[in-house]
Write a protein that binds this DNA or RNA. Structure first.
Lengths: 236, 236
DNA sequence: CGTAGCCTTGAAGGTGATCAATGTTTGTGG
DNA sequence: CCACAAACATTGATCACCTTCAAGGCTACG
């Protein structure tokens, strides 16, 4: 139940599969993970907490994490959902006495490699190709945040639709696809800054119309085109 | 009136003053700006536009810029306000066929150094110390975005107060301070995703109570402590 | 078997949006 | 210097959307 740590023998090979490490050799990745350790978490466990000293950054290698912060009224706001291949808290590493800017909760059983701050400063920053790919990753995350900000004035249904469509791998529009995270209505609400009840009303409406189905904690989108119409503000 | 470009003889020396280039020598900065050019814009002119091919990134050296995107309903959303020393569009440089992710409008007379994409890839990325400081900059920008997202459920007055307090250099709380940008109500509204009218109602209320004054296009905060109370949700 | 987390539904109420009209400031050209 | 246009600021009335509050059901897990 509690977080466990193992050696990262096999994990390094997993990393090679992610675009971030694409043109690197096994030894090079090994060196980039120097002194790191794997952490295995179960559902709702905390990888790191907002405000703690940030001596490690992370690479997700399994499951998913939600990055969130508490508002002063008590309920937390989800900033980002992380999938395997994503990097956590790397941006704050350069700061001398860095604190984690967010709290990271595991969504379902998850794993992450935690790597020392010094290794980032000495080895990661010295590798221009790696930094370039990391900046692309950050650029996409930034882009998502901005995309959500643009939707602020849109009706709630548009926001929920946009979020769901952001989360599915948008390969083939027109076909059925499913959200690759165990996502609760509360988490959707916390991510959009609205109440659970409102999200439920929107989504149960879609359920009746056959737009989406929630089965087994997994959200499947049956008619992506009609969801996209919701984003664009048309009536469905 | 239209955007002008000069050589950047003197501008390089200006750069040395910003934290980003703090430990660099004049020649090094010169090399980092290789082939760059200075652009001088007047109020409301566009430095670059969302969707254009991004072959240059920028460093602000005077005035201010607002980074915004159009929503599908037509009005634009302000993502960020840039002051001198800030870097523009650097994150997308690593991508092969990068497009500008936002539109940059000058707020009042402003200047920026525009530097070729290749120079970023070859010289900037190869300088670990520089990249580290750039990531700190980005980290702060990210932090602002997140801070605003956390405020989403708060009442409008709290959001406006938080924005104003973010923009002033928060040195001495308790004393009078003023926003260092020519900021209109519309821009505040576009930044928060609300309507102009709502912002006006909040701020004119504060004006009557002596919390803030708008004179000469400049917003001065007379009683910062009471503004902070607004953020925390207390009645004023 | 009981608790905890999640989902659902309904009724009432408030906050901010919308629409419309008008005043104010800034900048431009004759 | 004045006239005019454009951008910005302001105020009021009405209304929709989302929140809040309350109550209950479902499933998982110790």
């Amino acid at each position: 139940m509690s977080s466990n740590s193992e050696s990262l023998v096999g994990a390094v090979t997993e990393l090679l599969a992610y675009p971030l490490f694409h043109d690197l050799k096994h030894d090079e990745v090994q060196s980039l993970c120097d002194g790191g350790q794997i952490r295995v978490l179960s559902h709702r466990e905390v990888l790191f907490r907002h405000g703690e000293p940030a001596n490690f950054f992370g690479v997700v290698v399994g499951g998913a994490f939600k990055l969130s912060r508490l508002a002063q009224n008590g309920d937390d706001t989800v900033i980002h959902f992380c999938s395997p291949g994503d990097v956590l808290a790397a941006l704050v590493m350069p700061q001398p006495r860095a604190l984690y800017p967010l709290t990271a909760h595991a969504m379902g059983p998850s794993r992450a490699i935690m790597i020392r701050r010094e290794v980032y400063l000495q080895k990661w920053l010295a590798n221009p190709g790696l930094i370039a790919r990391m900046q692309s990753l950050l650029s996409m995350r930034m882009s998502r945040l901005q995309g959500q900000k643009v939707m602020q004035r849109a009706p709630l249904s548009a926001k929920v639709a946009a979020l769901l469509l952001q989360l599915v791998c948008k390969d083939k529009s027109g076909e059925e696809m499913s959200v690759p995270l165990p996502l609760t209505r509360k988490e959707i609400a916390d991510s959009l800054g609205v109440t659970v009840e409102s999200v439920i009303r929107v989504m149960s409406d879609w359920g009746k119309k056959g737009l989406v189905v929630t089965s087994d904690q997994s959200i499947r989108i049956l008619q992506p085109d009609r969801l996209i119409q919701q984003v664009d503000g048309e009536e469905g």
